[in-house]
Nucleic acid binder design. Structure first.
Length: 423
RNA sequence: GGAGGAAUGGCAGAGUGGUCGAAUGCGGCAGUCUUGAAAACUGUUGAGGGUCACACCUCCGGGGGUUCGAAUCCCUCUUCCUCCGCCA
């Protein structure tokens, strides 16, 4: 959620930046300004009325104590009027405040100046590309065929148990997956991220804090009996650890890493591009989350990008990094880098990580603040990134590491899997 | 799931209708003293709105109510503790 003060003070800059998202922000911002002014006017009026009410009540108290009941009676009548008036104003204030909030929820985060113009994924800016794309021999298979051939991932079995998009990992497939999770967590921990295990269901307040609610309710599985949501990413519970918190400057940065399964409804898309591991309703992901002082947050974003690069280099997977354009940028993000690995057999890039700086957009909703050197409370910046999402990494490994004898295990993972080849 | 008790500032803990945003202690910060530190002493120390700055307003788990006036009374929800039941 945008900070109101920014709307008041930097209107023109906001409009210019928001236009990168190919939206016309002016009507919404106008509405915000209008409601904001209205709110303040009502508040001022109400405060004045309450002040009178308070003063009158105090007087009544004093009069009663000194036995002047008659005079008190007169004042009582007066205070009833103040009360009615303040009640009326209070209702108006509530109405205007919720209208203001609802309008603010409709405005996405302000893109950073590095965000390129553009409408769709086509316009994302490739900032680097690394690693050799292996030349596969005749008869090389896409990962879903490999999964079947070596009996390591069973998509049909998942359909039986649950439904499409809930695969079952078996044998060395399961072990490889577990190896990846541990490897990622170890890498993140070594880089200074504290490992944390969080609930996989969250309440509405948490969903709201990170921006999944109220807008994207349909993307999450909702457990209606208890009004809880299955997490679409560890970002939600991990970032909400610090909801409603005031940190000390010396506590920053806060760096967390957590492994969780992720659940996404992603209704309505079927076909070749969701085949195999490309898109699932349940998948595993290791996430990194940081809370930073505003002055450091972009340095932190770069550090996170470098960190993810390091992992992909060790895995020896060909990858590229994209800076998302205005049209593809997530609602709550100010700047996002996507990582994609090359799926050789499918001959396409698969997104395996998304690293974003949300600046104060989430923090404002979360009431996540810190006390600066002057003792003033300020909104912190929140960032997160995948390091990494499992299924597509697995797909990349299966396809890029396939040989006639079987699928080789990337060298860094052998200590974790305990085997060198899937055959 | 059943019965009882509780929820107050960073923490501990008073306050049961009137000048209480809240005693006191600990902690934090600043100062005095000291070569320095500790101890001692003095002051200061919640969040949000509002204002150029004051004033002023809101917040004592959440929501609603009674009253001229609520941390204090009533209703309701949530959470925690104790006991019983069930259970990985």
């Amino acid at each position: 959620m945008l900070v109101l003060q920014a709307v008041r003070e930097n209107r023109e800059d906001l409009i210019k930046a928001l236009k990168k998202r190919n939206i016309d922000p002016e009507p919404l911002l106008n509405k915000v300004s209008e409601l904001d002014e209205k709110r303040r006017a009502i508040q001022t009026q109400m405060d004045a009325t309450l002040a009178q009410l308070n003063a009158t009540s105090k007087e009544i108290g004093i009069l009663f104590k000194s036995g002047k009941a008659e005079e008190a009676k007169e004042l009582k009548e007066k205070s009833v009027q103040f009360k009615e008036e303040s009640k009326k104003l209070g209702e108006e204030l509530n109405a205007v405040t919720s209208a203001l909030d609802e309008t603010l929820y409709l405005i996405p985060n302000v893109p950073h100046h590095l965000v390129p113009d553009g409408k769709s994924t086509e316009d994302n800016e490739e900032v680097m590309r690394e690693g050799d794309i292996p030349v596969l021999k005749e008869g090389a298979l896409p990962h879903w065929e490999l999964a079947k051939k070596y009996d390591i991932i069973d998509f049909e079995l998942g359909v039986k148990i649950t439904g499409a998009g809930f695969p079952v990992y078996k044998g060395k497939g399961a072990k490889l997956q577990r190896a990846l999770i541990t490897y990622f967590l170890d890498k993140n921990t070594a880089a200074g991220y504290r490992e944390i295990q969080v609930p996989h269901l969250v309440n509405a307040a948490s969903g709201f804090g990170t921006g999944q609610l109220p807008d994207k309710e349909g993307q999450m599985y909702h457990v209606t009996a208890d009004d809880l949501y299955l997490i679409p990413t560890a970002e939600v519970p991990v970032t909400n650890v610090l909801r409603d918190t005031i940190l000390q400057a010396k506590d920053l940065p806060v760096c967390y890493t957590g492994y969780t399964p992720c659940f996404r409804r992603e209704a309505g898309s079927y076909g070749a591009h969701v085949r195999g591991l490309n898109r699932l309703h349940q998948f595993d992901k290791v996430e990194i989350v940081r809370v930073e002082e505003p002055a450091n947050s972009y340095k932190a974003l770069d550090a996170m990008v470098e960190h993810v690069k390091g992992i992909l280099r060790e895995l020896k997977l060909p990858f590229r990094v994209l800076r998302l354009c205005g049209g593809d940028l997530g609602f709550t993000s100010a700047l996002t880098y996507d990582f994609e690995v090359f799926s050789t057999a499918q001959d396409k890039w698969l997104e395996i990580s998304s690293v974003s700086n949300f600046e104060t957009y989430q923090a404002n909703r979360l009431k996540l603040r810190y006390r600066d050197e002057n003792g003033k409370t300020q909104l912190a910046h929140t960032l997160n990134g995948s390091s990494l999402a499992l299924p597509r990494v697995l797909a990349g490994i299966l396809e890029n590491y396939q040989t006639e004898k079987g699928i080789r295990v990337p060298e860094v993972l052998i200590p974790y899997t305990g085997f060198e080849i899937i055959d």
